[in-house]
Structures are given as C-alpha cells and as structure tokens.
Amino acid sequence: MLTESDNISYRFSCPGPGVFRCNLTGLMFVMTKKAELQYWTVQWDERVLQPAGKTAAGPLFNIQSSPEGAVSQLHLPHCETMDAPLPEGLLSVVHITDDGMSILKLLHITDTHVVVKVLHLSAFGLVTNDEYRNTANRSVNGQVLLFLQKPQSETQKQYLDVFLLPRNVPLSEVIARHQDVDYIKAPPRCQLIVGESYSVDCPEAALIQPDKAVFDLEFEPNYHPMFEIRLPTNKDKMTLKVQDQTNPEVWKYEMDLKAPRRRHLKRNLPAKVLVQQTLSVPAETPNVLADEKLKSVRTQFIERVTDSNLNTLLGKLLDQRIINDGEMESAENPIRAKKAGALIDMVRKKGPEACSALITALCEVDPFLSKLLNLQ
C-alpha cells in the first residue's frame, strides 16, 4: 500500500534520449526517448519493510512517465561516504507496486548514486538491511538546515530550528513541510555518524533545547527539527556550531540575522501545485549532443583532470561495460595527459550513449571540473 505524502510533485519534459538529473531531488534518469516525467515522494510502509528485514535509506519516490517505457535506468541518491568499499547488502533498491515489494538487481554504486535497470515504473526507494541500521561509527553525508521563526514582539524572542538530516533528503521536501517559517540559506554539508549524540553551541542563545540528541537515518514524511534555539530579537549576528562527543566543530556557521537570506513559499497554494507551477526541474543535455560536448572540451579535460579521477572514471566505465578490460589496459599510461586523451578519444568513438555515460561519471567524480567545463 502506498500512502501519498502531503508535499510536492516534480515534473519536466525530457526532449529525447539521454541522461537527465533533477536538481531538486538528485534523481537521475536514463531515457530512451522523449517523454514527460512526473514523480513525488510517498510514505514508507513499515509493514512492508519489516518482514523483509529492511529499513529505509532514502525517500520513496513514485515515478510516472508518459509514454511508458521511456526510462531504462534510474539513479537514486544515497548518503554513504564511500571512504571504503560498502559492506555487501548495505544498500538495496526496492520496487513497490500494488502486488508487493521486490528487490532490484544493482547495476553499480557510484560515489553519489545507486543505479538500477527499470522495466515498469511505480515506487522506488533505497533500503538497508536492519543489521546495518545502527552500525557503530557509520559515517554518512549529512546536512544542517536552519529555519527561523518570526520574532515574537511580546516576548522579544525568536526561535531557530536546527535540522540534522541525511544529505539525500531533498531540501524542497523539508521546506514544503515547514512553510510557516523562513528557510535560512547556509552551506549545509557535513559528515554525521549514525547513532552519535550531537549538541549545538550558540553563545548568543538564551536557551537551546534539547541539550543533546541522537542522529538517526529518518526518512519520514514529517521532518522535525533536532534542536530549537531561543534567540533575543536584539541580536544582529550569531555563531552556531554542531558538535559531537569528540569533535567540537562538526559544522559551523556565522549568521547575520538581519540579512535578507530567507526564502518564503506562498502560503495560499497547496505545495504540490506550487512547485509544479513555479519550479522547473533542470535536466542535462541529451546524449545526442554528448559527442559534440566532449569534443569541445577535449583540450581542457586533458589539461585539468587528475590522474586519480582518471582511474576512477576508467573503473566506472568498465563497470558499466562501456569499455572492456583490454581497452582499459590500453588507456593506462604513466603520463597523465596521454591517459586522459586516450580515454576521451576512446569513448567518443563509441558514440553518443558512451559519451553521455562519461559525462555523467565525470559530474559525479569531479563536480567542480564538470561545472568548469559546462558539462552539468
């Protein structure tokens, strides 16, 4: 049974075959033809997960396509740090329909996504085995989100809500559920440890509640703040730190309380309609243009890509069977520039689909270089 969350729906039109990325949710779609995609989050049903010994490891997305059969692969964002090889069974992708839940075979896991082949669209989500849920010292990519309540003139106080969440929770989903407060745009990224106790330090605060809280991987429909900070309204600036038992500065931000950084959502429209009308979901260039894009950035790619990232790219292309073992060996060269040239030329000869795969891999491995080359 699927229970639709009271949130937002995402929609965009894919102009043709290619690899497309939703900048709001992090989902990536490999398309075989022109189609319109629409998707939204639905609530996980513990009655389905528990008998299978599974726990949610990301949001559950219900995906539709018109026409059907246009999506061949789905990339779901994960929050694992990938500092070491993941234990077998740590991440799985489930497909939930009216007939029940099935576990899909993984094609591969990148630094940011889990990739599966899809035949029929319905609800897809990441899960982990129950045994891994609270593994000791399991570090994940997290995010700190701040929401400021309106000042209370009668008490001369204002409240700041602090959220500690896995990074694969879409910001748009959290904002949609907290439309009565103002989102404070701040650099959110940090690493968090599952099961670790965290606290917040803010010298300007009149009160922080609670004193400590344990971080867990929660992907519930209603995201709740982990801490509430009471601030005097006469303060212009504040310094906020998130800390654990051993690290006094997991995350730090100096905030100007008077700066116009707050973003409002309209209050008089349902969130689902609001985002469809006001937010378009950017997509990457179709792979019919991927060959020309690689050709245009060949010189810069050769000059700037690092040797370690070249090795990672070769490994990803081998895993996806874009290249074979012999081609990987032929591309190996102690001179970095020659290796980079061999890689990009070899992929370009294989056609637009292979070029699109290399562009996608580069965006994941080196987002800064891919942005510099205008490949994102």
Rank of each mutant, 00 (worst) to 15 (best):
Y223G: 04
P334S: 02
V200S: 07
D244C: 06
P225M: 02
E228F: 06
H78S: 10
K241M: 12
S66K: 14
A35G: 11
R348W: 03
H264K: 08
H95R: 06
R263I: 14
L74K: 00
G341A: 06
L279R: 03
T32W: 04
L358C: 05
D130T: 09
K241N: 14
L362M: 02
V181H: 05
N7M: 02
V242W: 10
S172Y: 00
P248N: 05
I302R: 08
A213V: 14
L358R: 02
F301N: 05
P59S: 05
P282W: 10
L49R: 11
R263G: 04
L171R: 09
M82Y: 15
K117L: 04
A354Q: 00
Q245K: 12
E131L: 02
I323Q: 00
Y223M: 12
H75L: 08
D236V: 10
S308M: 07
D366F: 09
S330Q: 14
L294A: 12
G16P: 01
P210C: 01
D345A: 05
V250T: 08
R230I: 10
T135M: 03
V275F: 14
K350T: 03
Q300D: 10
S153P: 02
S65P: 10
L343D: 04
E292V: 15
E364D: 15
R267A: 01
I302L: 13
R262T: 13
Q149H: 12
K295V: 02
L207R: 13
L91N: 01
I193K: 07
G315A: 02
L90V: 06
K241Q: 15
H78M: 07
N234E: 14
A52Q: 15
L91E: 00
P210K: 01
Q243Y: 14
D325A: 13
L27Y: 01
T97R: 15
V347W: 08
V214R: 14
H113L: 00
T128R: 07
H224G: 07
V214Q: 07
N23R: 03
T3I: 14
C14A: 02
E327C: 05
T312M: 08
E46N: 08
I229L: 12
E204F: 02
L37I: 09
S172H: 05
E364K: 06
L148M: 12
R138K: 10
W44Q: 04
A271T: 11
P367R: 08
D211C: 08
R177V: 00
T246C: 15
V116C: 01
L148C: 03
L90S: 11
E364Y: 03
H78Y: 12
P170S: 03
P210H: 02
E284D: 13
Q64T: 06
I96H: 14
L146Y: 15
K157T: 12
M238S: 09
E88I: 08
L171Q: 06
K258G: 13
M238C: 08
Q43C: 08
V242P: 05
P248R: 14
D366V: 04
E68K: 13
K54T: 04
L160V: 12
Y183N: 00
C14L: 07
L27R: 02
L49D: 06
L289D: 09
P203K: 06
P85E: 04
F61Q: 00
Q276L: 11
P77E: 02
L91V: 04
S330Y: 15
